[in-house]
Design a protein around this nucleic acid. Structure first.
Length: 451
RNA sequence: GCGUGGUUGGUGAAGUGGUUAACACGGCGGAUUGUGGUUCCGUUAUGCAAGGGUUCGAUCCCCUUACCGCGCCCCA
C-alpha cells in the first residue's frame, strides 16, 4: 500500500515543527482576539460553486467530488472561506452584536492538482475572516496578521504585494478597459492568454509567458479605474499599514484567482532565489459580495489564508528553527526484571510532577541503555537495582557532567526541580543572557522565560 | 491535464544481462552482567517500486501502472 498522490505523513521532526507553529498561531489569534471556527472537511458541491466561483480552475477541474450513499453531491473543501461563510450564515452569526466577527480557522484542504514543490493535494491552511465591517482598518489588520507572524518567526526574505480591484463598478470598468487594451493584440498572445481573455481577463496580468510583450508593459492599472470611494478605501489601507510599520509594494499585477474578491487584494511572497515556483506564502483580500452570494444578508468581509507547507519550506530555506532541541529530563534503567515495577512507579511519579521521564522497556543491557539515554538526549539517568529498591536511595547521574548524586526517593522531585528548568548552564549549556542563576554561572533559562 | 527526471536495506548509497547485491552509518548481540559513549568480533536486503514482456537467464533492456522530484496551468 502506498499513500495517495500529493499527500504526506507527518511524524518526527516535521511533526514537532507543525505542532510548534500551530501553537504560535493559536497564541497569536488569542492576542488578536479572534474566535476559532471549525467547519466540516466536506460540504455540498453547490456551496463551492457559489462561493469560490464556477468559472475558476479550482472549481472546474481541481475539486475532489463524490456522491455520498444518499446520492448527495459532496466536495472536499478546496479552501476555507466558503465553509466559514456558510457557517456564519447558517448559525446566524451576523446576529451576534459583537461586530465585526473576527474568525480564524485551520485545517486540511483538498485540490486535485499535479504535486510539485510547495503544492500538495492535501494541504493545511490557516486563515482568518472578518465579517461585518467595511472599514479599511480591518483590511489593514488582516494583512498585519501574516506579516507579523512571519516577522515573529524571523523570516526576512518576504515581500508584501497589495492592490485594489475596487468595488463592482470599478472592477467592471477595469475589465472592459483590459479587454479593449488586449483586443487588437490578441494574436500575439500565448494560447493560455487567449483562453484567459475569454474566461477571466484579470488573469492576463500574471502570465509568465507574455510578461515581456509591449502590450503587457502598457497594460492599464486597476488603480486608475477605481471610483472615488474605492480609491479612498485603498488609500486608507495603505495609510494604516504604514502606521503599523508594515512595508508593502503596490503591485498592479496582483490580482487574485478567486472570483469573490473586491477592493483590497494582497499576497505575501517568499522572494528568495531558488525557492521554487510556488512562492506565494499567503494571499487574501476583501470580498464584500460573498456573504450575500451564498444566501446571507449583504455583509462585508476580509480574510486571508496561508499554506503551512510553504511556510515550513520557507523556514527551512532561511534556516529558521521553531522547535527546541529534543530532550528528555530523566531516563530510568531497571537492572533486571525484578526492579521493573519499582522503576515504573518512580517514572510515573516524575511524570505526575511534570518531568519528561522515560524508561527502558526493552530489557536492554546497561551499555545499550546508556546509548538509549543518549538517543533521548536525557539530562539525568537513574539506575535502579536491588539495593536502590530496598533502601529507597537512588543514584541519579547527570548525563552531561557525569556527576552522581545520592537522593532519597521522597526528595527526588525536589532535587530535579532544583536542577532542571532553572538552569541549562548547569548541564553544560551556553548562556545568552547576562543573568546569573543559582549555580553562579550565566544562564539562558531566563531569556527563555521572557519569550 | 501537459512536459521532464527519478524509484536499490532502518539511512546514505555503489553496482552489473549470468552462480553469495559493494562500502559506510545505524541497529542488535558479544569481548566488558552496576556505569556507557573508544576499540575489536559477529550479525543485519531470498531481494533492487508493482505487474507484464524480450532472453537460456534480468535489479540492469522494453511496455504498463503506482509513487516521488522539478516545471507549465493554477494556487496557499
Amino acid at each position: 500500500m502506498q499513500k495517495a498522490k500529493g499527500t504526506y505523513d507527518v511524524y518526527g521532526e516535521y511533526g514537532r515543527k507543525v505542532l510548534a507553529l500551530e501553537n504560535i498561531l493559536k497564541d497569536l489569534m488569542q492576542v488578536y482576539n479572534y474566535e476559532y471556527f471549525r467547519t466540516p472537511i466536506f460540504e455540498s458541491t453547490e456551496l463551492f460553486h457559489r462561493g469560490v466561483g464556477d468559472t475558476t480552475d479550482i472549481v472546474t477541474k481541481e475539486t475532489y467530488d463524490f456522491k455520498d450513499r444518499g446520492d448527495r453531491d459532496m466536495t472536499l473543501r478546496p479552501e476555507g472561506t466558503a465553509g466559514i461563510v456558510r457557517s456564519y450564515i447558517e448559525n446566524k452569526y451576523y446576529g451576534n452584536p459583537n461586530v465585526p466577527s473576527k474568525i480564524w480557522y485551520y485545517g486540511p484542504m483538498y485540490r486535485y492538482e499535479r504535486p510539485q514543490s510547495g503544492r500538495f493535494r492535501e494541504f493545511y491552511q490557516f486563515g482568518v475572516e472578518v465579517f461585518g465591517s467595511n472599514d479599511p482598518l480591518t483590511d489593514a489588520e488582516v494583512i498585519s496578521i501574516p506579516v507579523n507572524f512571519y516577522k515573529m518567526l524571523g523570516l526576512k526574505q518576504i515581500k508584501v504585494h497589495i492592490n485594489s480591484l475596487g468595488d463592482e463598478e470599478s472592477r467592471n470598468n477595469y475589465r472592459e478597459a483590459l479587454k479593449a487594451h488586449f483586443e487588437p493584440h490578441l494574436d500575439t498572445l500565448c494560447e493560455d492568454c487567449k483562453e484567459r481573455f475569454k474566461k477571466n481577463p484579470l488573469r492576463l496580468l500574471d502570465c509568465k509567458v507574455d510578461k515581456d510583450l509591449d502590450v503587457m508593459k502598457s497594460v492599464p492599472k486597476t488603480i486608475d479605474y477605481l471610483n472615488e470611494e474605492s480609491k479612498k478605501h485603498f488609500d486608507k489601507v495603505c495609510e494604516y499599514l504604514t502606521s503599523m510599520g508594515i512595508e508593502y509594494i503596490v503591485d498592479p499585477g496582483c490580482v487574485r484567482g478567486l472570483d469573490y474578491y473586491t477592493h483590497t487584494v494582497f499576497e505575501v511572497e517568499a522572494s528568495v532565489e531558488g525557492f521554487g515556483a510556488q512562492n506565494i506564502l499567503c494571499g487574501g483580500g476583501r470580498y464584500n459580495k460573498l456573504v450575500g452570494m451564498i444566501g446571507g444578508p449583504e455583509t462585508p468581509g476580509v480574510g486571508f489564508a496561508l499554506g503551512m507547507e510553504r511556510l515550513i519550506t520557507a523556514l527551512d530555506f532561511e534556516n529558521i528553527s521553531v522547535v527546541d532541541e529534543y530532550s528528555t529530563d530523566c531516563y530510568i534503567i531497571p537492572m533486571s526484571d525484578n526492579e521493573k515495577a519499582f522503576s515504573l512507579s518512580v517514572c510515573n511519579a516524575l511524570r505526575m510532577s511534570g518531568f519528561k521521564a522515560d524508561m527502558d522497556y526493552m530489557s536492554r543491557n546497561l551499555k545499550s541503555n546508556f546509548k538509549q539515554s543518549e538517543r533521548l538526549n536525557s539530562k539525568y539517568v537513574i539506575i535502579i537495582g536491588e539495593e536502590e529498591e530496598k533502601t529507597n536511595v537512588l543514584t541519579i547521574k547527570d548525563n552531561k557532567t557525569k556527576d552522581e548524586y545520592k537522593v532519597e526517593l521522597e526528595d527526588l522531585v525536589e532535587f530535579l526541580d532544583s536542577k532542571i528548568d532553572e538552569c541549562d548552564c548547569c548541564h553544560g549549556g551556553e548562556c545568552t543572557c547576562g543573568d546569573e542563576c543559582h549555580c553562579g554561572d550565566e544562564c539562558k533559562c531566563h531569556s527563555k522565560e521572557e519569550k
